[in-house]
Design a protein around this nucleic acid. Structure first.
Lengths: 205, 205, 205, 205
DNA sequence: CATGAATGAGTGTTCATTCAT
DNA sequence: AATGAATGAACACTCATTCAT
């Protein structure tokens, strides 16, 4: 590898790294203050640069949200593929999806919060059409899984599938709001307890 | 009752009614677009008046959010008092609280969504100190209830109480995001199914 | 005089009285807060009515200022005529004008303050052309008086007449800013001391 | 001096200069139209930039007034210190103070006019507490000076000191209203004539 | 890469004014 | 005479964005 080539890669890599850094900062601020309530200057302040300087890296505030959300969704779906393609039972698939969801929260907490709070609003714009697609894909996945579980005799048949879907979806993702890395409970701990709740409920016996 | 008195009551009532109308409209818009992303003009448009005219009725945009949230919280706590003061078992109390929560969502859906999305942000302002108070009162109520349920042998002892609290809290209130009055499932229907989920889980028999 | 006629006069007089009351209130508020910084509502509050109600009596905020200023100027000039037409020496005329000026301040303090603070600004509007006229008439009167005094040997010839004019004009009218009826010094007391200052200065001996 | 250092000083100086330019423009507009009657846009127009751009340099319209007034008062007091600390007789001190006052008017005419017209109104705000302090310090200085002059036999004892103080204060500062740099009379010319008026009056011989 | 000054559209808010009652 | 709800233009101020340096 020639020095030239190393340099070129070095700058490209450095640039990508800087982008990632800035996006992480932006996601943090968006998550904690809300996307609309956050000014570009606040993001820049948190990154230690001036407001205008962000525009060297990104086209717009919206572009930052876009990159934050699409990155997180891509990784989430990739991790789901692994579970869905493993040929597991409905019950084990559910377990796998929930575990992966909490791992996603662990890795992308601010992005998940941003998604939770703003996706409904952002999805109306054409730029964020993939949010709508992801949402319906998500719904289809869950409904299919729940129905398969009922057919397999693993899940109760007396519950409304649409309701159960929303129940699980909301419970899992809202957890991103309060989850803190390095807290008393790890993401896997929470996943385990939530699974117990989903599957068995809180009632004794 | 003299005509004078009727007139006075009439105008006072009319004024209160107008305020309530405008607040309902504002809550709807705040809930659907987000508080920060909503302009005062959008609220006014939805109410069929001009932006500045809202300021005849309210001091500020913040004052509208304040009145929307405090009204909803007051009614919610009043309905909770009825359940908590009835001398019920932990299990029946939980049932009552969840049912009342969904009735609150039914009556104050936009306010609940506003609370869900913005309370964290708003609570930092001194004007909204009551949001912090309500939050901690809510947490204490639930933790006490869950612990009593464990002592009474009604609830499992192997779950983290803080986690179960957040689980139920989030699940119930996030439902306001998608709940629609007059839909396939009534608020009481949803409450019943959610209770089945909380108590027994989705696992078959 | 028939009862009808008395009624008509009664209402007309009552109306005029109410106008005068409201104008006095408005002048007070304009003087203390500044014309631009005063809202119509503040004037109405001070008068114990609602903002819109003022428009039954006056066409506009400007119309109030107009009436306040023109009334005061009319009375001021009427009082000056008395002095100027009395065939006095320049020295005695100066004395008379200064005394009348302080009497005007005593009777129309808020109007004088309003004039002092806003006439420059208002005079640009055609409606207030009379302010410009009054100003130049005032200047001519003073310059003529001072020149006559010099010719008569009553006043020093080594001072710039334009400067002396401004000196006296400013000193007298600015006094309206701090003058309080019923204070330690009456308007006539102040006039006397000011005349001593104008004529003899503060130097001993 | 390294180039870096020169650059840093250069930009800091350039920034300070731009601020000073903008403040001079703002003071001019405030003085000619009145602070309340002046819009931020008018100031910006006069400076050849857009309204919003002013906020890059200043926090608010009030902040501009603040900086204009405090700068002028600081310089005025500094110039007074020079006179007061020189160990002069009361008569010569008065002369020095009046001369310095007209020099201040010469250098800060718009600021003085702003002070004259708006300080009473602005001083009610806590931000402008220094206006109240300056006012009382001013009064104490003058009263002490006048009393000393009487004791030293330089000034007449038959005049009310409070009245003489207001007389001189008003006369001097109101001159800012009409003073024009480069006019027929210089600031020092006016000071000289005003001193003649204060000390000896207009009466012949 | 980043700065810093500026833009210009838009925001919450104010306020003189209108008008049906 | 006065109310009270509304108007609509204007205001101080914000902020995403641009661009010469």
């Amino acid at each position: 590898m020639s020095p030239r080539r190393r340099d070129a890669e070095g700058t490209a890599a450095a640039r990508a790294e800087r982008r990632a850094e800035l996006l992480a900062t932006a996601a943090e601020v968006f998550a904690s203050q809300g996307y609309s309530a956050t000014t570009v200057r606040q993001v820049a302040d948190a990154a230690g640069i001036l407001g205008g300087s962000l525009y060297y890296h990104f086209d717009s505030k919206e572009a930052m949200a876009d990159e934050i959300l699409s990155t997180f969704l891509d990784e989430m779906w990739a991790s789901y593929e692994g579970v869905l393609g493993a040929g597991l039972s409905a019950r084990d698939t559910l377990e796998g999806i929930v575990v992966e969801s909490f791992r996603t929260i662990d890795l992308h907490r601010p992005a998940v919060v941003l998604y939770q709070n703003e996706s409904k609003h952002l999805a109306t714009s054409e730029r964020f059409a993939y949010l709508r697609e992801s949402r319906s894909r998500f719904e289809e996945m869950w409904l299919a899984l729940l129905e398969r579980g009922v057919r397999e005799g693993a899940f109760r048949a007396d519950l409304d599938p649409g309701l159960v879907y929303r129940f699980i979806r909301d419970t899992v993702w809202v957890a991103a709001t309060w989850y803190k890395r390095g807290g008393r409970l790890s993401a896997d701990d929470i996943a385990k307890q939530y699974l117990a709740l989903f599957l068995e409920g809180i009632e004794a016996g």
